[in-house]
Amino acid sequence: MEDLSLHILDIVENATAARARKIEIFVDEEPGEDRLTIEIRDDGIGMDKEVSRKALDPFFTTRSSRRVGLGLPFMAQAAQEAGGSLRVESKIGKGTKVIASFQYHHIDRKPLGNMVETVVTLLFGNPELEILYTHKKEGKSFAFSSSWVKNHFRDRPLVDPEVIREVERHLKEGLKQIGVQG
């Protein structure tokens, strides 16, 4: 993966395969503390202790649910290469939480990448999924939710030329205001 926003997209696609209805994405950038944290929570089927322990092993897979494979090990590798770590907390029937931390200024830390494209892909590609996205940078924060879009454009289908344009503009402006290049 070229950047961290692609890892986020991948982990959320995992969550939808695990029948999540709601996902939450938190990105917290603290350059002053040399810290970048990404947290992804879902309410999918979850994994038992054994499976979540093996989930970071690239050679382990549960074929029937496709919940694991290379996605998590790739993201764990990206975190470890940047002086950070990745941990998975999961409960059967409750969901899964993936928390990745990075040294913000580490030379091998991948750039965050295009969060607008990631959120837009998730939103329009999964119309029934509830998405909450919160991005913090140096004390400022921006929040986006799929329910805002659905309420705002109540009388329109989700995949509509005007809705696409407005959502992209809203995300770009919101991220720009907190100092993130979307």
């Binding site: 993966m1 494209e117 837009v120 892909t121 030329p161």
Partner: peptide, 23 residues
Amino acid sequence: MGTCGIAAGARKLMAVVLKEIEE
């Protein structure tokens, strides 16, 4: 949008499709 698809550039395809729908 599997891990393989995303690593190979699937998100760009989605961006192209949404751009075409919009334009």
